[in-house]
Design a protein around this nucleic acid. Structure first.
Lengths: 298, 298
DNA sequence: TCGTTCGATAGACATTCTCTATCGACAGAT
DNA sequence: ATCTGTCGATAGAGAATGTCTATCGAACGA
Protein backbone atom coordinates (compact mmCIF):
# COMPACT_ATOMS: atom_id res chain seq x y z
CA UNK A 1 0.00 0.00 0.00
CA UNK A 2 2.62 2.54 1.05
CA UNK A 3 4.72 1.76 -2.02
CA UNK A 4 1.70 2.53 -4.21
CA UNK A 5 1.40 5.87 -2.48
CA UNK A 6 5.06 6.46 -3.30
CA UNK A 7 4.21 5.78 -6.92
CA UNK A 8 1.69 8.58 -7.12
CA UNK A 9 4.03 10.92 -5.27
CA UNK A 10 6.66 10.23 -7.92
CA UNK A 11 4.04 10.68 -10.61
CA UNK A 12 3.10 14.06 -9.17
CA UNK A 13 6.77 15.08 -9.22
CA UNK A 14 7.66 13.78 -12.64
CA UNK A 15 4.30 14.15 -14.39
CA UNK A 16 5.33 11.19 -16.53
CA UNK A 17 4.71 7.48 -15.94
CA UNK A 18 8.04 6.36 -17.32
CA UNK A 19 10.19 8.78 -15.38
CA UNK A 20 8.15 8.29 -12.21
CA UNK A 21 8.68 4.55 -12.53
CA UNK A 22 12.39 5.02 -12.97
CA UNK A 23 12.50 7.28 -9.91
CA UNK A 24 10.84 4.49 -7.93
CA UNK A 25 13.17 1.85 -9.28
CA UNK A 26 10.44 -0.11 -11.08
CA UNK A 27 9.32 -0.41 -14.70
CA UNK A 28 6.57 1.64 -16.22
CA UNK A 29 3.97 -1.18 -16.34
CA UNK A 30 4.57 -1.85 -12.67
CA UNK A 31 3.89 1.74 -11.78
CA UNK A 32 0.84 1.81 -14.02
CA UNK A 33 -0.50 -1.27 -12.29
CA UNK A 34 0.16 0.25 -8.89
CA UNK A 35 -1.76 3.39 -9.73
CA UNK A 36 -4.59 1.34 -11.16
CA UNK A 37 -4.73 -0.76 -8.02
CA UNK A 38 -4.98 2.33 -5.86
CA UNK A 39 -7.79 3.57 -8.05
CA UNK A 40 -9.64 0.29 -7.65
CA UNK A 41 -9.23 0.30 -3.88
CA UNK A 42 -10.52 3.86 -3.69
CA UNK A 43 -13.22 3.27 -6.26
CA UNK A 44 -12.38 6.49 -8.13
CA UNK A 45 -10.09 7.52 -10.93
CA UNK A 46 -7.14 9.40 -9.48
CA UNK A 47 -5.27 10.31 -12.67
CA UNK A 48 -6.66 11.92 -15.80
CA UNK A 49 -5.25 9.97 -18.69
CA UNK A 50 -5.30 10.66 -22.36
CA UNK A 51 -2.48 9.24 -24.30
CA UNK A 52 -0.40 11.43 -21.99
CA UNK A 53 -0.38 12.11 -18.28
CA UNK A 54 -2.94 14.85 -17.80
CA UNK A 55 -2.77 15.58 -14.10
CA UNK A 56 -4.80 14.32 -11.18
CA UNK A 57 -8.52 14.27 -10.60
CA UNK A 58 -9.81 16.20 -7.57
CA UNK A 59 -9.90 12.91 -5.67
CA UNK A 60 -6.38 12.24 -6.86
CA UNK A 61 -5.23 15.54 -5.42
CA UNK A 62 -6.68 14.62 -2.05
CA UNK A 63 -5.07 11.20 -2.12
CA UNK A 64 -1.82 12.92 -3.02
CA UNK A 65 -2.09 15.11 0.02
CA UNK A 66 -2.64 12.13 2.28
CA UNK A 67 0.08 10.18 0.53
CA UNK A 68 2.62 12.88 1.32
CA UNK A 69 1.74 12.66 4.94
CA UNK A 70 1.55 8.89 5.20
CA UNK A 71 4.75 8.25 3.26
CA UNK A 72 6.50 10.99 5.22
CA UNK A 73 5.41 9.46 8.51
CA UNK A 74 6.46 6.00 7.43
CA UNK A 75 9.93 7.31 6.60
CA UNK A 76 10.09 9.26 9.82
CA UNK A 77 9.27 6.07 11.70
CA UNK A 78 12.07 4.19 9.99
CA UNK A 79 14.50 7.01 10.67
CA UNK A 80 13.55 7.21 14.29
CA UNK A 81 14.01 3.50 14.86
CA UNK A 82 17.32 3.52 13.02
CA UNK A 83 18.44 6.36 15.24
CA UNK A 84 17.41 4.49 18.37
CA UNK A 85 19.37 1.53 17.11
CA UNK A 86 22.60 3.11 15.97
CA UNK A 87 22.59 6.80 16.85
CA UNK A 88 22.05 9.71 14.54
CA UNK A 89 23.13 8.77 11.03
CA UNK A 90 21.96 8.92 7.47
CA UNK A 91 21.64 11.85 5.12
CA UNK A 92 20.39 15.33 5.95
CA UNK A 93 19.08 17.08 2.86
CA UNK A 94 18.82 20.86 3.05
CA UNK A 95 17.89 23.45 0.46
CA UNK A 96 18.69 27.14 0.95
CA UNK A 97 18.06 30.36 -0.91
CA UNK A 98 21.24 31.69 -2.55
CA UNK A 99 21.56 34.68 -0.23
CA UNK A 100 21.55 32.34 2.77
CA UNK A 101 24.01 29.80 1.42
CA UNK A 102 26.94 31.47 3.12
CA UNK A 103 25.47 30.95 6.57
CA UNK A 104 24.58 27.30 6.17
CA UNK A 105 28.05 26.45 7.39
CA UNK A 106 27.20 28.11 10.70
CA UNK A 107 24.55 25.43 11.07
CA UNK A 108 26.27 22.40 9.61
CA UNK A 109 29.58 22.87 11.41
CA UNK A 110 28.33 22.56 15.00
CA UNK A 111 25.85 19.90 13.84
CA UNK A 112 28.68 17.80 12.53
CA UNK A 113 30.56 18.22 15.81
CA UNK A 114 27.66 16.64 17.62
CA UNK A 115 26.64 14.06 15.03
CA UNK A 116 29.64 13.01 12.94
CA UNK A 117 27.83 10.17 11.17
CA UNK A 118 25.36 12.35 9.32
CA UNK A 119 26.02 13.17 5.67
CA UNK A 120 24.84 16.48 4.24
CA UNK A 121 23.36 17.23 0.85
CA UNK A 122 22.73 20.93 0.30
CA UNK A 123 20.86 22.43 -2.64
CA UNK A 124 20.70 26.03 -3.75
CA UNK A 125 17.09 26.75 -4.69
CA UNK A 126 14.52 29.51 -4.88
CA UNK A 127 12.19 29.96 -1.94
CA UNK A 128 9.29 28.52 -3.94
CA UNK A 129 11.30 25.49 -5.00
CA UNK A 130 12.30 24.91 -1.40
CA UNK A 131 8.68 24.70 -0.30
CA UNK A 132 7.91 22.32 -3.14
CA UNK A 133 10.84 20.10 -2.24
CA UNK A 134 9.66 20.04 1.36
CA UNK A 135 6.14 19.11 0.24
CA UNK A 136 7.44 16.28 -1.88
CA UNK A 137 9.66 14.91 0.88
CA UNK A 138 12.75 15.52 -1.24
CA UNK A 139 14.51 17.54 1.45
CA UNK A 140 14.45 17.39 5.25
CA UNK A 141 14.74 21.12 5.84
CA UNK A 142 14.91 24.45 4.06
CA UNK A 143 16.47 27.81 4.80
CA UNK A 144 14.37 30.59 3.35
CA UNK A 145 12.39 33.76 3.97
CA UNK A 146 9.85 33.59 6.76
CA UNK A 147 6.57 35.35 6.73
CA UNK A 148 6.78 37.01 3.35
CA UNK A 149 4.98 34.55 1.13
CA UNK A 150 2.82 31.75 2.51
CA UNK A 151 4.82 28.78 3.74
CA UNK A 152 2.39 25.87 3.89
CA UNK A 153 2.37 22.99 6.34
CA UNK A 154 5.74 23.61 7.98
CA UNK A 155 7.31 24.73 11.22
CA UNK A 156 9.82 27.57 11.09
CA UNK A 157 12.65 28.65 13.36
CA UNK A 158 13.99 32.20 12.86
CA UNK A 159 17.74 32.34 12.28
CA UNK A 160 18.66 35.92 11.53
CA UNK A 161 17.50 39.12 9.83
CA UNK A 162 18.64 39.99 6.38
CA UNK A 163 19.63 43.67 6.07
CA UNK A 164 20.64 45.19 2.76
CA UNK A 165 23.93 46.75 1.69
CA UNK A 166 24.95 48.50 -1.47
CA UNK A 167 28.05 46.65 -2.59
CA UNK A 168 30.25 48.94 -4.62
CA UNK A 169 33.85 50.06 -5.03
CA UNK A 170 35.08 52.96 -2.93
CA UNK A 171 35.73 55.19 -5.93
CA UNK A 172 32.30 54.75 -7.48
CA UNK A 173 29.80 57.64 -7.25
CA UNK A 174 28.25 56.54 -3.94
CA UNK A 175 31.43 54.77 -2.76
CA UNK A 176 32.38 57.25 -0.11
CA UNK A 177 29.06 57.40 1.72
CA UNK A 178 28.34 56.06 5.22
CA UNK A 179 24.73 55.25 4.31
CA UNK A 180 22.64 55.50 1.18
CA UNK A 181 18.90 55.55 0.54
CA UNK A 182 16.95 53.20 -1.71
CA UNK A 183 16.17 56.18 -3.90
CA UNK A 184 19.88 56.70 -4.44
CA UNK A 185 20.48 53.01 -5.04
CA UNK A 186 17.79 53.06 -7.71
CA UNK A 187 19.97 55.41 -9.78
CA UNK A 188 22.95 53.01 -9.84
CA UNK A 189 23.31 50.29 -12.52
CA UNK A 190 23.04 47.09 -10.54
CA UNK A 191 23.88 43.39 -10.77
CA UNK A 192 20.92 41.51 -9.29
CA UNK A 193 19.52 38.02 -8.93
CA UNK A 194 17.02 36.87 -11.55
CA UNK A 195 13.35 37.68 -10.82
CA UNK A 196 12.46 34.09 -9.92
CA UNK A 197 14.36 34.67 -6.68
CA UNK A 198 12.45 36.12 -3.77
CA UNK A 199 15.44 38.29 -2.87
CA UNK A 200 15.09 40.00 -6.22
CA UNK A 201 11.37 40.43 -5.79
CA UNK A 202 11.96 42.05 -2.41
CA UNK A 203 14.58 44.42 -3.83
CA UNK A 204 12.28 45.19 -6.75
CA UNK A 205 9.56 46.13 -4.32
CA UNK A 206 11.89 48.40 -2.36
CA UNK A 207 13.17 50.12 -5.48
CA UNK A 208 9.73 50.53 -6.96
CA UNK A 209 8.58 52.13 -3.71
CA UNK A 210 10.91 55.02 -4.58
CA UNK A 211 9.11 55.46 -7.87
CA UNK A 212 11.84 54.06 -10.07
CA UNK A 213 11.47 50.98 -12.27
CA UNK A 214 14.45 48.71 -11.47
CA UNK A 215 16.53 48.06 -14.57
CA UNK A 216 19.57 45.98 -13.61
CA UNK A 217 22.49 45.89 -16.00
CA UNK A 218 23.18 42.27 -15.20
CA UNK A 219 21.07 39.40 -13.88
CA UNK A 220 22.17 35.98 -12.69
CA UNK A 221 20.92 33.20 -10.46
CA UNK A 222 24.36 32.90 -8.88
CA UNK A 223 25.51 35.15 -6.06
CA UNK A 224 29.11 34.16 -6.79
CA UNK A 225 28.76 35.54 -10.29
CA UNK A 226 27.25 38.78 -9.04
CA UNK A 227 29.97 39.19 -6.45
CA UNK A 228 32.80 38.48 -8.86
CA UNK A 229 31.50 41.25 -11.11
CA UNK A 230 31.32 43.74 -8.27
CA UNK A 231 34.85 42.78 -7.26
CA UNK A 232 36.23 44.07 -10.55
CA UNK A 233 35.37 47.50 -9.25
CA UNK A 234 33.18 48.38 -12.18
CA UNK A 235 29.85 47.00 -11.08
CA UNK A 236 27.58 47.40 -8.08
CA UNK A 237 25.01 45.18 -6.41
CA UNK A 238 22.62 44.97 -3.49
CA UNK A 239 23.31 42.15 -1.06
CA UNK A 240 22.43 41.03 2.43
CA UNK A 241 25.00 42.30 4.92
CA UNK A 242 25.90 38.86 6.19
CA UNK A 243 26.59 37.53 2.74
CA UNK A 244 28.78 40.51 1.80
CA UNK A 245 30.82 40.01 4.96
CA UNK A 246 31.26 36.32 4.28
CA UNK A 247 32.39 36.88 0.73
CA UNK A 248 34.98 39.36 1.94
CA UNK A 249 35.30 43.12 1.88
CA UNK A 250 38.46 45.04 1.06
CA UNK A 251 39.55 48.67 1.28
CA UNK A 252 38.31 49.33 -2.21
CA UNK A 253 35.15 47.19 -1.93
CA UNK A 254 32.56 48.64 0.43
CA UNK A 255 29.22 47.41 1.76
CA UNK A 256 27.17 50.51 2.52
CA UNK A 257 24.04 50.22 4.67
CA UNK A 258 20.89 51.15 2.75
CA UNK A 259 18.49 53.09 4.94
CA UNK A 260 15.21 54.83 4.43
CA UNK A 261 13.55 52.55 4.76
CA UNK A 262 15.77 50.11 6.61
CA UNK A 263 14.44 46.90 5.07
CA UNK A 264 14.60 43.77 7.21
CA UNK A 265 13.71 40.24 6.11
CA UNK A 266 13.52 37.34 8.52
CA UNK A 267 15.42 34.26 7.37
CA UNK A 268 14.82 30.96 9.09
CA UNK A 269 14.92 27.22 9.09
CA UNK A 270 11.81 25.48 7.81
CA UNK A 271 10.96 21.84 8.49
CA UNK A 272 7.87 19.73 7.76
CA UNK A 273 5.18 20.11 10.44
CA UNK A 274 5.43 16.53 11.61
CA UNK A 275 5.15 15.50 15.23
CA UNK A 276 7.64 14.25 16.21
CA UNK A 277 10.17 15.29 13.61
CA UNK A 278 12.64 12.92 12.06
CA UNK A 279 15.69 12.71 14.33
CA UNK A 280 18.05 14.31 11.80
CA UNK A 281 15.64 17.20 11.30
CA UNK A 282 15.02 17.50 15.01
CA UNK A 283 18.73 17.81 15.70
CA UNK A 284 18.97 20.50 13.04
CA UNK A 285 16.17 22.45 14.68
CA UNK A 286 17.98 22.19 18.01
CA UNK A 287 21.10 23.53 16.36
CA UNK A 288 19.17 26.36 14.73
CA UNK A 289 17.68 27.42 18.07
CA UNK A 290 21.14 27.35 19.59
CA UNK A 291 22.83 29.55 16.99
CA UNK A 292 19.93 31.87 16.20
CA UNK A 293 20.91 34.43 18.85
CA UNK A 294 24.60 34.54 18.09
CA UNK A 295 23.91 34.95 14.39
CA UNK A 296 21.56 37.84 14.87
CA UNK A 297 23.87 39.60 17.29
CA UNK A 298 26.80 39.62 14.89
CA UNK B 1 3.16 -2.54 5.06
CA UNK B 2 0.10 -0.79 6.47
CA UNK B 3 -1.58 -4.13 7.19
CA UNK B 4 1.46 -5.15 9.22
CA UNK B 5 1.09 -1.98 11.23
CA UNK B 6 -2.53 -2.97 11.83
CA UNK B 7 -1.26 -6.27 13.17
CA UNK B 8 0.79 -4.67 15.89
CA UNK B 9 -2.05 -2.30 16.75
CA UNK B 10 -4.27 -5.32 17.25
CA UNK B 11 -1.53 -6.99 19.25
CA UNK B 12 -1.27 -3.95 21.51
CA UNK B 13 -5.03 -4.07 22.06
CA UNK B 14 -5.39 -7.79 22.60
CA UNK B 15 -1.99 -8.59 24.10
CA UNK B 16 -2.36 -12.02 22.55
CA UNK B 17 -1.22 -13.22 19.15
CA UNK B 18 -4.19 -15.49 18.56
CA UNK B 19 -6.85 -12.97 19.47
CA UNK B 20 -5.06 -10.18 17.63
CA UNK B 21 -4.97 -12.37 14.53
CA UNK B 22 -8.66 -13.08 14.84
CA UNK B 23 -9.38 -9.37 15.20
CA UNK B 24 -7.49 -8.78 11.96
CA UNK B 25 -9.24 -11.61 10.18
CA UNK B 26 -6.11 -13.69 9.66
CA UNK B 27 -4.64 -16.77 11.29
CA UNK B 28 -2.11 -16.63 14.09
CA UNK B 29 0.88 -17.71 11.97
CA UNK B 30 0.08 -14.97 9.50
CA UNK B 31 0.11 -12.34 12.19
CA UNK B 32 3.29 -13.76 13.67
CA UNK B 33 4.97 -13.58 10.28
CA UNK B 34 3.77 -10.02 9.80
CA UNK B 35 5.24 -8.89 13.09
CA UNK B 36 8.47 -10.69 12.34
CA UNK B 37 8.67 -9.02 8.95
CA UNK B 38 8.23 -5.60 10.52
CA UNK B 39 11.00 -6.44 12.95
CA UNK B 40 13.30 -7.41 10.10
CA UNK B 41 12.56 -4.25 8.15
CA UNK B 42 13.25 -2.13 11.22
CA UNK B 43 16.23 -4.21 12.26
CA UNK B 44 15.06 -4.35 15.90
CA UNK B 45 12.90 -6.60 18.00
CA UNK B 46 9.57 -4.92 18.60
CA UNK B 47 7.88 -7.48 20.83
CA UNK B 48 9.26 -9.18 23.92
CA UNK B 49 8.41 -12.81 23.60
CA UNK B 50 8.70 -15.62 26.02
CA UNK B 51 6.32 -18.44 25.56
CA UNK B 52 3.72 -15.70 26.03
CA UNK B 53 3.28 -12.19 24.74
CA UNK B 54 5.31 -10.04 27.09
CA UNK B 55 4.73 -6.53 25.83
CA UNK B 56 6.64 -4.32 23.46
CA UNK B 57 10.26 -3.24 23.46
CA UNK B 58 10.95 0.52 23.68
CA UNK B 59 11.38 0.53 19.91
CA UNK B 60 8.13 -1.37 19.62
CA UNK B 61 6.36 1.32 21.61
CA UNK B 62 7.64 3.97 19.24
CA UNK B 63 6.58 1.96 16.20
CA UNK B 64 3.20 1.53 17.83
CA UNK B 65 2.85 5.27 18.20
CA UNK B 66 3.66 5.82 14.54
CA UNK B 67 1.44 2.93 13.52
CA UNK B 68 -1.57 4.53 15.20
CA UNK B 69 -0.98 7.66 13.23
CA UNK B 70 -0.23 6.04 9.89
CA UNK B 71 -3.09 3.56 10.05
CA UNK B 72 -5.42 6.31 11.21
CA UNK B 73 -4.39 8.53 8.33
CA UNK B 74 -4.79 5.72 5.83
CA UNK B 75 -8.34 5.11 7.05
CA UNK B 76 -9.09 8.82 7.05
CA UNK B 77 -7.95 8.95 3.45
CA UNK B 78 -10.27 6.11 2.45
CA UNK B 79 -13.15 7.73 4.29
CA UNK B 80 -12.56 11.07 2.69
CA UNK B 81 -12.47 9.63 -0.82
CA UNK B 82 -15.57 7.56 -0.16
CA UNK B 83 -17.33 10.69 1.01
CA UNK B 84 -16.28 12.59 -2.09
CA UNK B 85 -17.63 9.74 -4.14
CA UNK B 86 -20.95 9.04 -2.52
CA UNK B 87 -21.59 11.64 0.15
CA UNK B 88 -21.32 11.21 3.86
CA UNK B 89 -21.91 7.58 4.75
CA UNK B 90 -20.48 4.78 6.80
CA UNK B 91 -20.44 4.29 10.54
CA UNK B 92 -19.84 6.93 13.19
CA UNK B 93 -18.58 5.35 16.40
CA UNK B 94 -18.97 7.44 19.54
CA UNK B 95 -18.26 6.65 23.17
CA UNK B 96 -19.70 8.79 25.97
CA UNK B 97 -19.47 8.87 29.73
CA UNK B 98 -22.69 7.63 31.37
CA UNK B 99 -23.69 11.06 32.70
CA UNK B 100 -23.50 12.47 29.17
CA UNK B 101 -25.40 9.68 27.45
CA UNK B 102 -28.70 11.51 27.71
CA UNK B 103 -27.45 14.44 25.65
CA UNK B 104 -25.94 12.40 22.84
CA UNK B 105 -29.34 12.49 21.16
CA UNK B 106 -29.02 16.29 20.94
CA UNK B 107 -26.01 15.68 18.74
CA UNK B 108 -27.07 12.66 16.73
CA UNK B 109 -30.55 13.92 15.87
CA UNK B 110 -29.57 17.04 13.90
CA UNK B 111 -26.61 15.09 12.48
CA UNK B 112 -28.94 12.51 11.08
CA UNK B 113 -31.12 15.23 9.55
CA UNK B 114 -28.16 16.43 7.57
CA UNK B 115 -26.52 13.07 6.82
CA UNK B 116 -29.13 10.33 6.71
CA UNK B 117 -26.75 7.68 5.38
CA UNK B 118 -24.53 7.56 8.44
CA UNK B 119 -25.01 4.75 10.94
CA UNK B 120 -24.28 5.34 14.61
CA UNK B 121 -22.65 3.05 17.12
CA UNK B 122 -22.59 4.50 20.60
CA UNK B 123 -20.77 3.03 23.58
CA UNK B 124 -21.11 3.89 27.24
CA UNK B 125 -17.61 4.01 28.70
CA UNK B 126 -15.53 5.60 31.42
CA UNK B 127 -13.54 8.70 30.53
CA UNK B 128 -10.30 6.72 30.62
CA UNK B 129 -11.66 4.01 28.37
CA UNK B 130 -12.85 6.64 25.92
CA UNK B 131 -9.34 8.04 25.55
CA UNK B 132 -7.95 4.56 25.06
CA UNK B 133 -10.55 3.76 22.40
CA UNK B 134 -9.67 7.00 20.62
CA UNK B 135 -5.97 6.15 20.76
CA UNK B 136 -6.59 2.73 19.29
CA UNK B 137 -8.78 4.05 16.49
CA UNK B 138 -11.74 2.06 17.78
CA UNK B 139 -14.03 5.08 17.95
CA UNK B 140 -14.28 8.26 15.90
CA UNK B 141 -15.21 10.58 18.74
CA UNK B 142 -15.79 10.66 22.47
CA UNK B 143 -17.94 12.73 24.80
CA UNK B 144 -16.24 13.19 28.13
CA UNK B 145 -14.86 15.58 30.71
CA UNK B 146 -12.55 18.27 29.40
CA UNK B 147 -9.61 19.66 31.27
CA UNK B 148 -9.82 17.53 34.38
CA UNK B 149 -7.47 14.71 33.59
CA UNK B 150 -4.96 14.82 30.72
CA UNK B 151 -6.53 14.11 27.36
CA UNK B 152 -3.69 13.17 25.01
CA UNK B 153 -3.40 13.85 21.32
CA UNK B 154 -6.95 15.02 20.67
CA UNK B 155 -8.97 18.11 19.82
CA UNK B 156 -11.88 19.00 22.04
CA UNK B 157 -15.02 21.04 21.52
CA UNK B 158 -16.88 22.18 24.66
CA UNK B 159 -20.52 21.17 24.70
CA UNK B 160 -21.97 22.17 28.04
CA UNK B 161 -21.24 22.48 31.72
CA UNK B 162 -22.25 19.77 34.13
CA UNK B 163 -23.82 21.16 37.32
CA UNK B 164 -24.84 18.92 40.17
CA UNK B 165 -28.22 18.28 41.70
CA UNK B 166 -29.31 16.30 44.68
CA UNK B 167 -31.94 13.95 43.31
CA UNK B 168 -34.34 13.01 46.06
CA UNK B 169 -38.03 12.67 46.82
CA UNK B 170 -39.89 15.70 48.07
CA UNK B 171 -40.71 14.12 51.43
CA UNK B 172 -37.14 13.11 52.24
CA UNK B 173 -35.21 15.12 54.88
CA UNK B 174 -33.75 17.66 52.41
CA UNK B 175 -36.65 17.31 49.98
CA UNK B 176 -38.20 20.67 50.63
CA UNK B 177 -35.09 22.81 50.18
CA UNK B 178 -34.40 25.24 47.33
CA UNK B 179 -30.66 24.61 47.49
CA UNK B 180 -28.42 22.37 49.56
CA UNK B 181 -24.70 22.41 50.31
CA UNK B 182 -22.22 19.60 49.69
CA UNK B 183 -21.80 19.32 53.43
CA UNK B 184 -25.50 18.56 53.75
CA UNK B 185 -25.42 16.12 50.84
CA UNK B 186 -22.59 14.27 52.55
CA UNK B 187 -24.99 13.33 55.36
CA UNK B 188 -27.49 11.66 53.03
CA UNK B 189 -27.17 7.97 52.04
CA UNK B 190 -26.53 8.11 48.31
CA UNK B 191 -26.68 5.96 45.16
CA UNK B 192 -23.56 6.74 43.15
CA UNK B 193 -21.62 5.52 40.16
CA UNK B 194 -18.75 3.09 40.78
CA UNK B 195 -15.36 4.68 41.51
CA UNK B 196 -13.91 3.84 38.09
CA UNK B 197 -16.12 6.61 36.74
CA UNK B 198 -14.73 10.10 36.70
CA UNK B 199 -18.10 11.49 37.74
CA UNK B 200 -17.82 9.50 40.96
CA UNK B 201 -14.26 10.65 41.51
CA UNK B 202 -15.38 14.25 41.10
CA UNK B 203 -18.24 13.80 43.57
CA UNK B 204 -15.90 12.03 45.97
CA UNK B 205 -13.56 14.99 45.83
CA UNK B 206 -16.37 17.44 46.50
CA UNK B 207 -17.71 15.41 49.42
CA UNK B 208 -14.28 14.87 50.93
CA UNK B 209 -13.67 18.62 50.76
CA UNK B 210 -16.40 18.97 53.37
CA UNK B 211 -14.45 16.61 55.61
CA UNK B 212 -16.77 13.63 55.27
CA UNK B 213 -15.71 10.29 53.80
CA UNK B 214 -18.29 9.40 51.14
CA UNK B 215 -20.01 6.12 51.94
CA UNK B 216 -22.69 5.44 49.32
CA UNK B 217 -25.39 2.93 50.14
CA UNK B 218 -25.49 1.72 46.55
CA UNK B 219 -23.02 1.74 43.66
CA UNK B 220 -23.58 0.90 40.02
CA UNK B 221 -22.05 1.66 36.65
CA UNK B 222 -25.49 2.35 35.22
CA UNK B 223 -27.23 5.70 35.58
CA UNK B 224 -30.52 4.04 34.71
CA UNK B 225 -30.15 1.77 37.69
CA UNK B 226 -29.34 4.67 40.00
CA UNK B 227 -32.26 6.67 38.71
CA UNK B 228 -34.73 3.83 39.01
CA UNK B 229 -33.78 3.45 42.66
CA UNK B 230 -34.24 7.15 43.35
CA UNK B 231 -37.60 7.00 41.64
CA UNK B 232 -38.94 4.60 44.26
CA UNK B 233 -38.78 7.58 46.61
CA UNK B 234 -36.58 5.79 49.12
CA UNK B 235 -33.12 6.59 47.74
CA UNK B 236 -31.20 9.70 46.81
CA UNK B 237 -28.43 10.41 44.35
CA UNK B 238 -26.26 13.17 42.96
CA UNK B 239 -26.65 13.75 39.23
CA UNK B 240 -25.85 16.34 36.61
CA UNK B 241 -28.76 18.70 36.14
CA UNK B 242 -29.14 17.95 32.45
CA UNK B 243 -29.37 14.24 33.03
CA UNK B 244 -31.94 14.58 35.79
CA UNK B 245 -34.10 16.73 33.53
CA UNK B 246 -33.85 14.25 30.70
CA UNK B 247 -34.79 11.31 32.86
CA UNK B 248 -37.86 13.18 34.05
CA UNK B 249 -38.80 14.92 37.25
CA UNK B 250 -42.17 14.68 38.96
CA UNK B 251 -43.88 16.49 41.80
CA UNK B 252 -42.47 14.03 44.27
CA UNK B 253 -39.06 13.72 42.67
CA UNK B 254 -36.95 16.85 42.99
CA UNK B 255 -33.54 17.88 41.64
CA UNK B 256 -32.13 20.37 44.12
CA UNK B 257 -29.14 22.53 43.12
CA UNK B 258 -26.09 21.83 45.25
CA UNK B 259 -24.21 25.01 46.03
CA UNK B 260 -21.25 25.92 48.14
CA UNK B 261 -19.21 25.35 46.19
CA UNK B 262 -21.15 25.38 42.96
CA UNK B 263 -19.19 22.70 41.14
CA UNK B 264 -19.00 22.95 37.36
CA UNK B 265 -17.42 20.40 35.01
CA UNK B 266 -16.94 21.07 31.32
CA UNK B 267 -18.19 18.28 29.08
CA UNK B 268 -17.20 18.21 25.45
CA UNK B 269 -16.67 16.34 22.25
CA UNK B 270 -13.23 14.87 21.75
CA UNK B 271 -11.85 13.78 18.37
CA UNK B 272 -8.40 12.58 17.26
CA UNK B 273 -6.05 15.47 16.48
CA UNK B 274 -5.84 14.66 12.79
CA UNK B 275 -5.69 17.29 10.09
CA UNK B 276 -8.01 17.12 8.26
CA UNK B 277 -10.45 15.03 10.25
CA UNK B 278 -12.36 12.13 8.78
CA UNK B 279 -15.50 13.48 7.14
CA UNK B 280 -17.88 11.77 9.57
CA UNK B 281 -15.93 13.15 12.53
CA UNK B 282 -15.67 16.58 10.92
CA UNK B 283 -19.43 16.76 10.47
CA UNK B 284 -19.88 15.77 14.10
CA UNK B 285 -17.57 18.57 15.19
CA UNK B 286 -19.59 21.01 13.10
CA UNK B 287 -22.75 19.80 14.77
CA UNK B 288 -21.17 20.10 18.20
CA UNK B 289 -20.14 23.69 17.55
CA UNK B 290 -23.66 24.42 16.37
CA UNK B 291 -25.48 23.05 19.39
CA UNK B 292 -22.93 23.99 22.06
CA UNK B 293 -24.49 27.37 22.77
CA UNK B 294 -28.09 26.24 22.88
CA UNK B 295 -27.19 23.37 25.20
CA UNK B 296 -25.38 25.56 27.64
CA UNK B 297 -28.12 28.16 27.69
CA UNK B 298 -30.84 25.69 28.67
C1' DT C 1 1.91 10.37 -43.99
C1' DC C 2 5.42 8.86 -41.21
C1' DG C 3 8.01 8.45 -37.05
C1' DT C 4 8.15 9.13 -32.21
C1' DT C 5 6.49 9.25 -27.65
C1' DC C 6 3.56 7.72 -24.10
C1' DG C 7 0.80 4.77 -21.46
C1' DA C 8 -1.98 0.33 -21.58
C1' DT C 9 -2.02 -4.61 -22.13
C1' DA C 10 -0.59 -9.62 -22.33
C1' DG C 11 1.73 -13.31 -20.59
C1' DA C 12 5.55 -15.46 -18.09
C1' DC C 13 8.05 -15.75 -14.04
C1' DA C 14 9.15 -14.57 -9.06
C1' DT C 15 8.01 -13.24 -4.79
C1' DT C 16 5.11 -12.83 -1.02
C1' DC C 17 1.22 -14.07 1.50
C1' DT C 18 -1.70 -17.04 3.92
C1' DC C 19 -3.35 -21.18 5.15
C1' DT C 20 -3.26 -26.02 7.72
C1' DA C 21 -0.82 -28.93 10.56
C1' DT C 22 2.28 -29.53 14.04
C1' DC C 23 5.91 -28.66 17.38
C1' DG C 24 8.12 -27.17 21.68
C1' DA C 25 8.08 -24.32 25.77
C1' DC C 26 5.92 -23.04 29.68
C1' DA C 27 2.36 -22.52 33.61
C1' DG C 28 -0.64 -24.41 36.62
C1' DA C 29 -2.94 -28.39 38.49
C1' DT C 30 -2.72 -32.99 40.33
C1' DA D 1 7.39 -34.95 39.44
C1' DT D 2 4.06 -35.49 35.93
C1' DC D 3 0.27 -34.27 33.30
C1' DT D 4 -2.45 -30.99 30.59
C1' DG D 5 -3.81 -27.06 28.27
C1' DT D 6 -2.30 -22.68 26.25
C1' DC D 7 0.62 -19.95 23.55
C1' DG D 8 3.52 -18.69 19.89
C1' DA D 9 6.97 -20.52 16.37
C1' DT D 10 7.84 -23.35 12.37
C1' DA D 11 7.27 -26.12 8.02
C1' DG D 12 5.41 -26.71 3.71
C1' DA D 13 1.86 -26.29 0.16
C1' DG D 14 -0.99 -23.55 -2.55
C1' DA D 15 -2.87 -19.02 -3.80
C1' DA D 16 -2.44 -14.34 -4.69
C1' DT D 17 0.18 -10.50 -5.91
C1' DG D 18 3.88 -8.20 -7.91
C1' DT D 19 7.18 -7.39 -11.54
C1' DC D 20 9.30 -8.07 -15.67
C1' DT D 21 9.78 -8.16 -21.08
C1' DA D 22 7.57 -7.50 -25.22
C1' DT D 23 4.27 -5.31 -27.75
C1' DC D 24 0.22 -2.56 -29.00
C1' DG D 25 -2.47 1.53 -30.16
C1' DA D 26 -3.42 6.37 -29.76
C1' DA D 27 -1.85 10.99 -30.20
C1' DC D 28 1.22 14.49 -31.66
C1' DG D 29 4.50 16.85 -34.55
C1' DA D 30 7.40 17.06 -38.67
Amino acid sequence: MIDKLEYILALAREKHFGRAAEACGVTQPTLSAGVRQLEQQMGVLLVNRGSRFQGFTPEGERVLDWARRIVGDARAMRDEINTLRSGLSGVLRIAAIPTALAMVAALTTPYRERHPNVQFTIYSRTSLEILELLENLEIDAGITYLGNEPLGRVNSIPLYSERYRLLTSADAPLGGRETVTWAEVAQVPLCLLTPDMQNRRIINRLLKATGVEPRPTLESDSMILLFSHVRTGRWASVMPAKLAETLGLTDTLRAIPITHPEAVQEIGLVVPAREPMTPVAGALVDEARRIAKSLDAS
